[in-house]
Design a protein around this nucleic acid. Structure first.
Length: 440
RNA sequence: GGCUGAGUGGCAGAGUGGUUAUGCUGCGGUCUGCAAAACCGUUUACGCCGGUUCAAUUCCGACCUCAGCCUCCA
């Protein structure tokens, strides 16, 4: 099986050739845990979960690392407001993140390193960059010297000088060159920090990913993923740091980036007040509905998220669940699912092909591969039971209706149907028997 | 201003140099006491303008619109 994947580095769809056929190394930028995950945070998690599942299906081993950023100025601010240590914030939101992702059918990566557990490795890497004369110390900061790295701008297709002409932000005076970025910055006594050769301080934004890739995967990896917004500066800087620390040319062979998520056609932002958290969505929609919604657009395209997409996704799942009648998992994933996925993760095509599958077993197995149809049909339709009636009451009314029907008292029968319908119970008369289902 | 990406029928969304995507919704039909489910049907779409071509939604060029990035946002 050949996987083709779009590589941001070459701007082309490429045949995926692993460094080692036996063990694939993938790293994805994870969350900064200072708040509830919003639906935009969920997109990369779901997209790369899909890639992880696919790779696991092809290769004997996949080592998937997704970091947790638990040192950050936004975390500091949140902790300060509550007058609690940062660990209070980060622990809480890490747990919530895990719960949310589990609800979306996202598998846990093999490693989820935290920045605070890897400070020594980060300091070591910064020291090596300094030793290689690719960084400098100024005003208690350690800064990466962008002019020392010829390849800078290759990933994001930017020219160093052009970038600066468009810069809108004032350049900090401790920078030799406006494009230089911080590897280590000083902390005040009341701020979180660690002792280092350059004084009490904390890591800059980009270095933690470089360090964790090195620690958990090695100097060169197969796939590095994240949102398109990370291409610049985050991933560009990661490449510069890692290659400078290792004196190497290659860091990640395939750069994979997911597109943006808009809410009802608008950018999701605090100022517009249209940020929706995963937790809020889960109160109204099942995790599978949200997962299907996220996978219904190709991962590189912008996704227009909103109520109509969710409702449509729910309808699709309802129809698919109605087709499920087998409990057995003894089937293979359909080629109609695998082939689109192998072509740059074409999940929309794979999803629409689900409806072509006639065999219930194959449908279940194939949908499970996409992280969908994880329940039985009965479980699915019993979920979110909005009915206030007990099963006994429902059965009793059905019995009364059947008697009325036998007597051709259809007015009475329809009255009972309406009564049940008002309580979200739908009746179906099949083969002389009446079955009921909760309306979804 | 620079860079990147996107623009397909009511909606979502594949794909293709000439032949049906598919799904969801709506509508019509078969079925049904009525429904539901299931099945069948549903006027045919590719931002605009040129060019290449026997033929372009698909290739090339310009343009328009939208979104994003341009130093710490997935």
């Amino acid at each position: 099986m050949n996987l083709k994947i779009y590589n941001t580095l070459s701007k082309e769809k490429e045949l995926f050739k692993p460094l080692d056929q036996k063990s694939i190394k993938m790293y994805v930028c994870g969350p900064t845990v200072y708040n509830f995950a919003h639906i935009g945070n969920a997109r990369p998690a779901v997209v790369f979960d899909m890639l992880y599942r696919l790779l696991k299906n092809i290769y004997p081993e996949v080592i998937y690392v997704r970091n947790i950023t638990d040192v950050d100025d936004k975390i500091n601010e949140a902790a300060r407001k509550l007058n609690k240590p940062i660990s209070f914030i980060t622990k809480k939101y890490t747990d919530i993140y895990h719960q949310d992702m589990t609800s979306l059918g996202v598998l846990r990566p093999n490693h989820e390193p935290r920045v605070t557990d890897n400070i020594d490795q980060i300091i070591s890497m910064i020291q090596r960059i300094l030793d290689n004369k690719k960084a400098y110390i100024n005003d208690s900061h350690v800064l990466f010297d962008v002019t020392s790295f010829d390849e800078y701008g290759k990933l994001s297709n930017r020219d160093k000088d052009e970038m600066l002409s468009g810069a809108r932000v004032e350049v900090a005076d401790y920078k030799k060159y406006a494009g230089d970025f911080v590897l280590w910055k000083p902390s005040n006594k009341d701020e979180p920090g660690w002792n280092s050769p350059w004084g009490y301080g904390r890591p800059g934004w980009h270095i933690e990913c470089s360090s964790m890739v090195e620690t958990y995967l090695g100097e060169e990896i197969d796939i590095h993923g994240g949102g398109q917004d990370l291409i610049f500066p985050h991933h560009e800087n990661e490449i510069a740091q890692s290659c400078s620390a290792h004196n190497s040319k290659s860091y990640a062979r395939y750069w994979v980036h997911n597109g943006y998520l808009n809410m009802e056609g608008e950018k999701m932002s605090k100022s517009l007040g249209n940020i929706i958290t995963v937790k809020e969505l889960l109160e109204e929609y099942d995790g599978e509905v949200i997962r299907l919604a996220l996978l219904s657009t190709h991962y590189r395209k912008p996704i227009n998220f909103g109520k109509s997409l969710l409702e449509q996704s729910k309808n699709i799942l309802n129809k698919l669940y109605k087709k499920l009648n087998s409990e057995s998992d003894e089937a293979l994933v359909s080629e109609d699912i695998l082939i689109p996925l192998l072509d740059d993760l074409n999940t929309p095509l794979a999803i629409s092909n689900l409806s072509k599958i006639k065999c219930s077993k194959t449908l279940k197995k194939s949908a499970n591969f996409l992280g969908l149809l994880n329940r039985t049909s009965e479980e699915w339709f019993a979920l979110n039971n909005k009915s206030t009636m007990s099963e006994n009451d429902i059965e009793l009314l059905i019995k009364q209706r059947d008697e009325a029907r036998k007597l051709k008292n259809f007015a009475k029968a329809d009255e009972i149907r309406d009564q049940l319908d008002n309580n979200h119970v739908v009746l179906e008369d099949v083969d002389g028997k009446t079955i009921w289902r909760v309306k979804k």
